[in-house]
């Protein structure tokens, strides 16, 4: 792709403005999108942080899942943070019984896996795909990736040593043109995750 890509941020609810700022600061066009018509002129889609059950309810009520899934099947790159990770996972646990997702990532996402808001935290993460400098990640009522399919690449984990758990906790993944993080790069000033996604969009 030679022209400057235009990336849509799904504006049902959540921190849409922060993703638009991060994308604009990374040198692409960024627009809020919330209707099937507004999806027509975008080269990639970001599903922001927010409340995944609310996004699911409103996407059903506004008939958005059908066009979103169709766009993904046609290869549109998509990136989701936090609630966006849930929206891009094929399976969700600890959500609503009737919760739907766009899908695209062959993972099981565990909603609110770290607990309630008082358990929300910040931590430095090693993410080799974006370089040697650790990424300062914010987890807010965050999900984690409880299991992954064979085609899913793990981009980052919280090491077992940093938790009281026995295993590493997967918090960033990629499968083809779809990537997701449990944490929120959009509310920090570090643009490397958005730049990684923009590279996927430019290559598609």
């Amino acid at each position: 792709m030679s022209k400057t890509p235009t990336i849509g941020v799904l504006a049902i609810q959540g921190d849409v403005r922060e993703h638009i700022r991060a994308l604009s600061d990374s040198g692409v066009n960024a627009v809020a999108v919330k209707t099937a018509k507004s999806f027509e002129n975008i080269d990639g889609l970001v599903v922001p942080g927010g409340e995944s059950t609310t996004m699911s309810i409103l996407a059903i009520k506004n008939d958005l899942f059908k066009p979103l899934r169709a766009m993904q099947q046609q290869g549109m790159p998509m990136y989701g943070s936090c609630a966006g990770l849930i929206m891009l996972s094929n399976t969700v646990t600890d959500g609503r019984a009737d919760q739907e997702t766009i899908g695209g990532l062959d993972i099981i996402a565990q909603r609110n896996a770290f607990g309630r808001q008082v358990d929300s935290f910040e931590i430095d993460l090693d993410i080799p795909a974006i370089g040697d400098v650790p990424f300062h990640a914010l987890f807010i009522r965050a999900p984690l990736v409880a299991s992954i399919g064979p085609d899913v690449e793990v981009l980052a984990s919280i090491p077992a040593a940093a938790t009281n758990d026995e295993t590493d906790r997967i918090v960033a993944v990629r499968q083809g043109n779809v990537m997701a993080t449990s944490f929120h790069p959009e509310i920090t000033d570090d643009l490397r995750i958005h730049q990684l996604f923009i590279d996927i969009v430019r290559a598609s």
Binding site: E51, C82, R141, I158
Partner: peptide
């Protein structure tokens, strides 16, 4: 360990996630 809870950023960030709701 090196994770911190209750920071200004996770408190304000939580409110960011409620936006538009």
């Amino acid at each position: 360990n090196n994770a911190v809870t209750g920071t200004d950023r996770v408190k304000r960030g939580m409110a960011d996630m409620l936006k538009g709701g």
